[in-house]
């Protein structure tokens, strides 16, 4: 079976929380339960303060199997306001990653 994953370009994640609520709505999860969670990082660098956000797929992430059947992207990817999430075959995501920086691939 083809192995799918999520690529996050975390230079562009603004921490807007759309992915989290999109996931909760899609799956009908109550508060406290979610397939993706955004973490925030704040740290000093040689150039001053850095602020990064990173969406992290939890154990509940099923990459929206039911949406995939209709040819739709996972709810988080579709609604991401800064379009920093990509859904695809792991092999293809790696190709994207080779061209970028501050990226991570999750295979939930």
């Amino acid at each position: 079976m083809a192995k799918y994953g999520l690529l996050i370009d975390y230079n562009y994640c603004t921490g807007c929380h759309s992915c989290e609520v999109a996931c909760q709505q899609e799956h009908g999860y109550p508060e406290g339960k979610t397939g993706i969670k955004v973490a925030e990082f704040e740290y000093e660098t040689f150039k001053g303060l850095a602020i990064d956000f990173l969406p992290y797929p939890t154990d509940l992430c099923d990459l929206c199997v039911s949406r995939q059947k209709n040819g739709e992207r996972p709810a988080c990817v579709k609604h991401c306001q800064s379009r920093c999430m990509e859904f695809g075959l792991l092999g293809e995501l790696v190709t994207t990653m080779e061209k970028g920086h501050k990226m991570v691939i999750f295979a939930p």
């Binding site: 929380h17 759309s18 609520v21 999109a22 709505q25 579709k78 609604h79 306001q81």
Partner: peptide
Amino acid sequence: VKVEGDEDNPFNQGRSCPRVLAMT
């Protein structure tokens, strides 16, 4: 039962904020 961003609307081009996704 569900609200999703409209890809055909040039304003948001399919994207949505968390507040509209919590509409239900």
